[in-house]
Amino acid sequence: MKRVETECTLTVNGVDHAVSGLHPGESLLDTLRERCGLRGSKGACEEGECGSCTVLVDGEAVCSCLTMAAAVSGRSIVTVEGIGEAGAADLQDAFLRAGAVQCGFCTPGLIVAADALLTRNSSPSVDEVREGLAGNLCRCTGYGRIVEAVLDTASQRREQP
């Protein structure tokens, strides 16, 4: 059985990663974790249900477990490791202060998804936060502190634009 391989260049957090020996169907999540050494993005369902693997591709939040790495070659990818420098340090801090982090496994994906939400909508209502983050599962917190962290960040950004 001949193994088909390809190569591509992934631009992650502003850094180019030349990836070779790539199976064409390999997920962006696996490539980030096992080939680029970026293990901040997590896998917890392998089918786009839990959101733990959320990354930004050209500013849009996607499930990296459902995205083929080869398909996002040359596009701008931001992961949790780069989201702080990309402008979400306040959101990270808000998650911590609000108590939105327990085991922390969902946290990388949630912070990326929440950042994308706030980019789309700088003044979300509670329902809009709930709707915007409904694709990210958390098993520890019951989500109350997460809603608070996102609303806090939005309100602080409004006060200090």
Partner: peptide, 21 residues
């Protein structure tokens, strides 16, 4: 006091190492 968790910084920036990492 509502002290923040000592591993929280690593958990929000993706550097906290889970067993799968």
């Amino acid at each position: 006091e509502p002290v923040l968790r000592p591993d929280g910084g690593a958990k929000v920036d993706g550097s906290f190492e889970f067993s799968s990492d």
